[in-house]
Design a binder for these strands. Sequence first.
DNA 1: AATGAATGAGTCTTCATTCAT
DNA 2: AATGAATGAAGACTCATTCAT
Lengths: 200, 200, 200, 200
Amino acid sequence: MARKRVGNKRERIINAAARLFGEKGYHRTTTSEIADAAGVAAGTIYIYFSSKEMLIVAVFEEFLGSHMHRLQDGVDAVAGPEAKTRRLLTLGLELMESNPASARIFLSQLRQSSEMIKAVAKRSSRAYKDIIEGVVKDGVSAGVFRECDPVATAVMIFGAYQNVVLEWVAADCSYHLGAKAQELSDFVLTGMACKETSGS
Amino acid sequence: MARKRVGNKRERIINAAARLFGEKGYHRTTTSEIADAAGVAAGTIYIYFSSKEMLIVAVFEEFLGSHMHRLQDGVDAVAGPEAKTRRLLTLGLELMESNPASARIFLSQLRQSSEMIKAVAKRSSRAYKDIIEGVVKDGVSAGVFRECDPVATAVMIFGAYQNVVLEWVAADCSYHLGAKAQELSDFVLTGMACKETSGS
Amino acid sequence: MARKRVGNKRERIINAAARLFGEKGYHRTTTSEIADAAGVAAGTIYIYFSSKEMLIVAVFEEFLGSHMHRLQDGVDAVAGPEAKTRRLLTLGLELMESNPASARIFLSQLRQSSEMIKAVAKRSSRAYKDIIEGVVKDGVSAGVFRECDPVATAVMIFGAYQNVVLEWVAADCSYHLGAKAQELSDFVLTGMACKETSGS
Amino acid sequence: MARKRVGNKRERIINAAARLFGEKGYHRTTTSEIADAAGVAAGTIYIYFSSKEMLIVAVFEEFLGSHMHRLQDGVDAVAGPEAKTRRLLTLGLELMESNPASARIFLSQLRQSSEMIKAVAKRSSRAYKDIIEGVVKDGVSAGVFRECDPVATAVMIFGAYQNVVLEWVAADCSYHLGAKAQELSDFVLTGMACKETSGS
DNA sequence: AATGAATGAGTCTTCATTCAT
DNA sequence: AATGAATGAAGACTCATTCAT
């Protein structure tokens, strides 16, 4: 139980920070507000995180870890470029929907100019694009997708995906994001000239 | 001459701000730095802009105005959904390339949490998406593009476009962005199942 | 007049800092207290000094500059090792007496562990000891003082001098420090086995 | 054994504090650092000492007790003002040399502005000066030293002594301090116009 | 219109001290 | 007695904004 309390506090801080950073932005959120929201003293934050910057990094890495694993696992669980693509995009939107706070941070707050934060942003983009790139490359070499540069294509797919999420966030998450998966998948798969497409 | 000097100063402030906001981010750039870079006194900024926030808004609106006009004009100058789409994306990338400072602000700094800034961000996205949407809608009703929701599709196209620019910015504008126009147009047009597509 | 006001503010900060650092010590004095005492805003201190540390350094360098010059000038103005020694010590005590705030800082607050402050402390000690050493060396080579290591001797003379001042400061400057000059000079000159001594 | 452990802990804290206060200064040393260095928990310090301030006081009183006793005993063990003086200074330097941490605290950290610390500083100076004063007074009344104010003279001797130690500390204890005893004694005895002086 | 010195509210961070276990 | 996580008051410093000149 003593053990739990410790974990609890770190968790509470992370959650409070995620919510506030997402809502008000990194710079407009003060460490005191986070402490208040987490129900801890101002100094307590610094027991778990060495600085405000390391806190947003931690918030995001926490989110990213499970997110990426689940994404990769989901993709691996199905066969064929088309199914993989649909799975990737659908699952991606679902994960974002289940954690709007982190989604906001991912889409906006990670675009800070701090070196530290930019590094995480780059890492997370990298991870995303690697997964997408893998799927595209497979589809191309299988002759299911049209000939294209998988790197450049991953960038475009990732952009389309991000903007669908951003639109949802800008609309205050007022609709079901998962419902956009079909449209997104269709656009991407058609964009790949996918020969298996049966969806749309 | 007095008139000119004034205009000169406003312009110099806008330019300095655009560069610095783009390089270091909105929050990490101080008004004094902007004043220094513009060669004016700290107080002078407040003669032309009511606050730092209004300054970034002005910086961006300045950019947006000509950008949007040129984009719309470019699109109007050619005929047919395919040509319009290619023109739109190519011109868009070219405009971004010609003004990297504003591009950076557009892609990152406009994602601030301030209401004022969010409003401009929304407005600029709106403007972009309206143009894209118009082209898509025409293509669909002309039967050249596949059936799809033009609004949702515009979001995805805009996302792909943005991310191509972001990738270029993240790579420190180290390559020719215009060269990506072909790939982007192909991806989008294929995604639209464009029946006119001929490769370029 | 505008000019004067500027100089005035820097001076007021230096004076307030000197007094407070002397009274309460460096660490127990807050920058806000200094600002209050100087009649300026908290931020104003940082227009003139880059940090609290640079402020105490400035406070002391200000004092040291004139102090050392006057000391050297005083010593140069008289002839003969004995007269020079008496002049040095008498003048030294007088200067300390005329600026108790700086005297306190010199004797106590400069013994801080910060590298920056230690550097000034070292420099000021060096300056003092150089003057003393010069006088001793002359006296020895003139055969007026006994054979001794001028460096080590300067250290001891400087120590005796410092402690006379410290004793006065510890007694809240409640007596006339200049009155101790005779005793100090006699002790030092006898310690040098000065053959000219006529004082005591 | 429980008893011993307690004594052990108090001692370990005192030793760690002495070393750290000496090295980094009172204000720059945190209680947590002391606890770490002593191998105890942060809270444990407060079982043995009521505050950080009382800790430095204890550190120094510990040192002072034995120091003073040994000094007084050493002086008492020899006969004649000259011998007593030499013994006093030589032993003083040796004791300082054997405990550089406390020497540093004595010379620098005790010059803090806290009332509590100033009180110990005063007490320790008092103790030192009393011993010196006693020796001087005896020498004067025995007609071996020249006529002088023993109180003022003790201040000067103490200052010379302190500065010899300070010089050594400033040089990172890089030479043998005991070797300076001869010079110091000669200076002081000559300063007293000691009639017995024979050179050592 | 222009200046730039001055302001002071606001922020992150530290650290002596406490207290439940 | 011992622990060490938690506290929260305090402090150095920043910077958007103002205003007398």
